Amino acid sequence: MSPSTARISWQEYQKLVPAAYAALTSLSQAVAASGLEHDLVEMLKLRASQINGCAFCTQYHLNAARKLGVPREKLDLLIVWREAGIFSAREQAALRWTEKLTFIAGDHVTDEDYSGVSAQFSPSELASLTTAVALINTWNRIAGPLQFTPPIPKPEREPAHV
């Protein structure tokens, strides 16, 4: 498999559809101001991006989660969160909800699914959580097919030569 190159860069996307970009940015700001824990939101965005195979969003949200101080173990084990034993009940509920909404076409959300997430989140939080999942799935469906180049952080210092 050869490395992909951007079909359209995120900067070009922003210039081509400024109103859509502004709307997505506004929605992102609403989620950020919702009161949900920022580290939790980054983990659910990362998990949805892993599922959807979006390299840009996966790297973007890894970078953001690291800046927020999400423990490395949680980032390393996010893909196997059910088996990891290190995620809180609230985090597990959010990740389960993220997966249900991301796979919604193949497995519709049941009353049991809703009851499970409602046990951990208030109605307002659940509305914001659902919005965050919808938003990242929208970005995945833009950045993935257009193959935005992942934002690889520059190393803070040069690695030592062995």
Results as ranks from 00 to 15, higher is better:
106 G>S: 11
36 L>F: 02
140 N>C: 06
101 L>E: 06
16 L>I: 06
80 V>I: 03
152 I>L: 11
106 G>Y: 13
97 W>D: 14
46 L>A: 04
133 V>W: 00
3 P>G: 05
87 F>N: 05
145 P>C: 05
36 L>N: 07
63 N>I: 00
45 K>Y: 11
117 V>S: 03
47 R>D: 01
120 Q>M: 15
29 Q>L: 10
159 P>C: 07
145 P>I: 00
97 W>Y: 14
14 Q>Y: 13
157 R>P: 05
31 V>D: 04
68 L>P: 07
83 E>C: 05
60 Y>L: 06
19 A>Y: 09
42 E>L: 01
143 A>F: 13
102 T>I: 06
19 A>E: 15
5 T>E: 09
81 W>K: 10
28 S>W: 00
122 S>C: 08
65 A>M: 03
151 P>Q: 13
119 A>D: 14
1 M>F: 02
76 D>R: 06
155 P>S: 12
66 R>M: 01
61 H>G: 04
109 V>P: 09
152 I>S: 14
47 R>T: 01
146 L>D: 07
123 P>K: 14
70 V>S: 02
158 E>N: 14
91 E>T: 03
75 L>A: 01
72 R>H: 04
123 P>V: 02
47 R>Y: 15
17 V>R: 07
136 I>C: 01
10 W>C: 02
91 E>Y: 10
50 Q>I: 07
68 L>D: 01
58 T>F: 05
44 L>D: 06
1 M>Y: 09
86 I>G: 13
118 S>N: 12
116 G>W: 07
37 E>K: 15
149 T>S: 14
153 P>G: 08
68 L>C: 01
95 L>G: 01
80 V>Y: 09
96 R>F: 14
129 L>I: 00
145 P>W: 08
110 T>Q: 13
130 T>R: 07
121 F>H: 02
45 K>N: 13
111 D>P: 12
47 R>W: 07
116 G>Y: 12
45 K>W: 12
6 A>C: 10
155 P>H: 12
145 P>K: 04
37 E>S: 14
11 Q>D: 10
68 L>T: 01
122 S>E: 13
70 V>I: 02
61 H>K: 03
161 H>V: 03
67 K>H: 04
103 F>E: 13
106 G>A: 10
71 P>L: 00
122 S>I: 05
130 T>K: 02
111 D>E: 15
44 L>N: 00
88 S>L: 09
148 F>L: 05
93 A>D: 11
79 I>C: 09
135 L>K: 01
38 H>Y: 01
124 S>A: 12
143 A>N: 08
23 A>H: 10
51 I>F: 11
80 V>E: 03
75 L>Y: 05
65 A>Q: 02
27 L>K: 03
89 A>S: 15
63 N>L: 00
8 I>T: 07
33 A>E: 10
25 T>L: 04
130 T>S: 15
49 S>D: 07
23 A>W: 09
79 I>A: 15
136 I>D: 08
125 E>P: 09
153 P>W: 14
41 V>L: 07
136 I>W: 06
30 A>G: 05
57 C>R: 05
1 M>N: 12
